[in-house]
Computed example of a mutant assay.
Amino acid sequence: MLIHPTRPAHPLVEPADFAADRLPGPVAAHEEALRAVHRWSREYLCEPHPDLGRRGDVCPYTGTSLQKNVFFLSVHPGRPTDPAELADLLLHYRDWFAELEPTSGPAAQFKTILVLFPDLGGDGGFDVVDRTQEMLKVEYADHGLMLGEFHPGPPDKEGLWNPRFRPLSSPVALLGMRHMVPTDFPFVRGDDVTLAVYLRLFGERVPTHLRREVQAAADRLATSGS
């Protein structure tokens, strides 16, 4: 478990912590939620799904993040209703994310932080997670980060390869951040602002199988801005 030097009340649980019979004392009260999300990460995100619409794991990123021990979870109790409240909270994690080791090398691009909100429930309680992600996605993209929303609702976003599939369903409401990577183009192509950030970061490093689509998107963006 990692403790922030100035905000010890919000520790990060590491993958190795889940090998113990009990999680460390500071997060023991939230053991059920933390273990549920850790199990979901391994058994859902790291596995194929018949409704996904493509081959491979639901999230190609998570397995390596777990293996490299850079997949971190944190918990916040309570039922926030204002996206601004969650935005202020996530600022701490965004800044800590940049400082967390490794900050360079192959493993650095796989760092992930999931912030859990186990007290949020249905009847509109998950809406604050969706609204927070929508409010912050451009700001986080500008820092080279992807911010994703997950909850049992599930979120309304359709699967990229199967519109009937809702891939962002999770057992506990959470917001997750990770580095934007060159293969993220399908997630940003529908939003011109985040697309512009993607082109700035990866314009020269686009995967071969995406080059034609990315060039078409770049041309469209250039034309619309002229």
Rank of each mutant, 00 (worst) to 15 (best):
L2N: 05
P5M: 06
P5E: 07
P8H: 10
H10K: 09
V13C: 04
F18G: 03
A19H: 09
A20P: 02
A20H: 14
D21P: 09
R22V: 08
L23S: 07
L23T: 06
P24Y: 12
P24C: 07
P26M: 09
A28V: 05
H30F: 15
E31H: 05
A33C: 09
R35F: 12
V37M: 08
H38L: 03
R39E: 15
W40E: 04
S41C: 13
C46Y: 08
P48T: 10
H49K: 13
P50Q: 12
D51E: 15
R55E: 15
G56T: 09
G56E: 10
V58T: 14
C59N: 14
P60H: 07
Y61L: 14
Y61P: 00
T64V: 12
L66P: 02
K68L: 15
V70Q: 10
F71N: 06
V75K: 03
V75F: 04
G78T: 08
R79Q: 14
D82A: 11
P83C: 10
P83N: 06
D88R: 15
Y93G: 01
R94Y: 05
R94A: 13
E99C: 05
T103M: 08
S104G: 08
P106D: 11
A108S: 15
F110V: 02
I113H: 01
V115G: 01
L116M: 07
P118G: 05
P118T: 11
D119N: 11
D119S: 09
L120Y: 11
G121C: 04
G121F: 09
G122S: 14
G122E: 13
D123R: 14
D127K: 14
V128T: 05
D130K: 10
R131V: 01
T132C: 07
T132N: 07
T132E: 07
K137F: 08
E139T: 14
D142V: 00
D142S: 11
H143I: 00
L145S: 03
L145T: 02
G148P: 00
P152L: 04
E158N: 10
L160H: 06
L160I: 13
W161I: 00
L168K: 08
S169E: 15
S170Y: 09
P171T: 11
V172F: 12
A173L: 11
M177Q: 14
M177I: 15
H179C: 12
M180Y: 12
P182M: 07
F185S: 04
P186Q: 13
P186S: 11
V188F: 13
V188S: 05
R189C: 11
R189L: 09
R189G: 00
G190Q: 06
V193C: 01
T194Y: 02
L195A: 06
V197D: 06
R200D: 12
L201P: 00
G203C: 02
G203S: 02
V206F: 01
T208R: 11
T208M: 07
H209I: 03
H209V: 05
H209K: 05
R212F: 03
E213F: 03
V214H: 01
V214Y: 01
Q215L: 07
A216P: 00
A217E: 02
A217V: 02
L221C: 04
L221W: 01
T223A: 15
G225I: 00
